[in-house]
């Protein structure tokens, strides 16, 4: 079963949200437009709409998360859903319960929508294959595979600041190899017909045949940033030093850190993004992170509207297909 079949209804509407791959331009644009309409809700003094009233959303996180989990929680609350937060790494699976048993036990509590983060690539698909009909799965990050809502909030941010994608050059910098965010961003940027997508990293942080993802590969940061409109910095996990993927944090910053001098290689109005949490002084200099080209905090705000959009689209597809 391919990705597209699993997450779409027969009418081509969102049933689950598992990966960007397999979705088309129209659906991604629909998500962005719907999110746009929700930004006004978030700006109101009473920040609620009744779209998910009576529905229960379970945040099922097998991996630690702060902002993704809390923005999903806020998004669900603002759509008037009941919300259940479960951090599984400290719960049942440690006691030996199988993943499917955990899922079916929660289903027995009449959960309508699962927001799932799990360390295995493909786990969101796995859950979507095994939930009861009518129950939806939102992927909040599966291994190194996909993090589609993050990618969509990044697309939302880019569209807000640059209005279109066709004439843009976008550079994604850092640990592409281990990054589900980068994979989802690359798919989204390509589906939205972005002019040029670049990835910038040392070979040890790139997956093999990375160019097959539809990107230009750069090992030199200055060349990679030249004349780009958007810079997306990725978080560097500290574990990468011990795995002999990199010599040291210092060396990494010198070669691939975004400093204010390096920023000059990009267009003067380039925006700087980061999915967070950022390591100041390792992948990004504080002055850039807090500088006027940075839209990092706006990303977080937009994250709520984008997650509201995806949740509401899934619920409305369910209504037509009981």
């Amino acid at each position: 079963m391919n990705n597209a079949n699993l997450q779409l209804t027969d009418e081509g509407k969102l049933k689950h949200f598992l990966s960007i791959e397999g979705l088309n331009h129209a659906i991604l644009t629909d998500i962005l437009d719907t999110a746009e309409s929700f930004t006004s809700v978030t700006d109101r003094s009473i920040k609620k709409v009744p779209i998910l009233r009576g529905k229960t959303v379970a945040n099922l996180f097998f991996e630690a998360s702060t902002r993704t989990r809390s923005t999903f929680e806020l998004a669900a609350q603002r759509l008037s859903a009941d919300i259940l937060n479960l951090n599984i790494n400290t719960s049942a699976t440690v006691k030996g319960e199988s993943l499917l048993d955990t899922l079916h036990n929660l289903e027995a509590m009449q959960i309508d929508m699962f927001v799932i983060r799990h360390q295995d690539s493909g786990s969101a698909h796995f859950f979507a294959q095994h939930v009861h009909p009518g129950v939806s799965v939102l992927n909040a990050g599966d291994g190194q595979h996909a993090h589609p809502t993050q990618a969509m909030l990044d697309m939302f941010t880019i569209r807000r600041y640059k209005q279109q994608f066709e004439n843009l050059s976008v550079a994604i910098v850092g640990d592409i190899k281990h990054s589900r965010v980068a994979r989802s961003q690359i798919h989204a940027l390509n589906i939205l017909n972005t002019g040029e997508v670049r990835i910038v990293a040392p070979p040890t942080l790139l997956p093999k045949q990375a160019d097959t993802l539809g990107v230009q590969v750069f090992h030199d940061m200055n060349q990679g940033l030249r004349d780009v409109d958007v810079i997306i910095m990725l978080r560097l996990q500290k574990e990468r030093m011990t795995g002999a993927l990199l010599p040291s944090e210092k060396e990494y910053f010198r070669q691939f850190g975004l400093s204010s001098e390096r920023l000059q290689f990009a267009k003067h109005d380039a925006i700087v993004m980061h999915p967070g949490p950022a390591n100041r002084g390792i992948e990004i200099e504080s002055s850039v992170m807090d500088g006027n080209q940075s839209v990092i905090l706006q990303q977080v705000t937009f994250g709520i509207a984008v997650r509201m959009a995806v949740m509401s689209m899934i619920v409305s597809s369910g209504k037509e297909n009981p």
Partner: peptide
């Protein structure tokens, strides 16, 4: 390329 696309180790 497939492992790269699916993010499989």
């Amino acid at each position: 390329s497939l492992a790269t696309r699916l993010g499989l180790p």
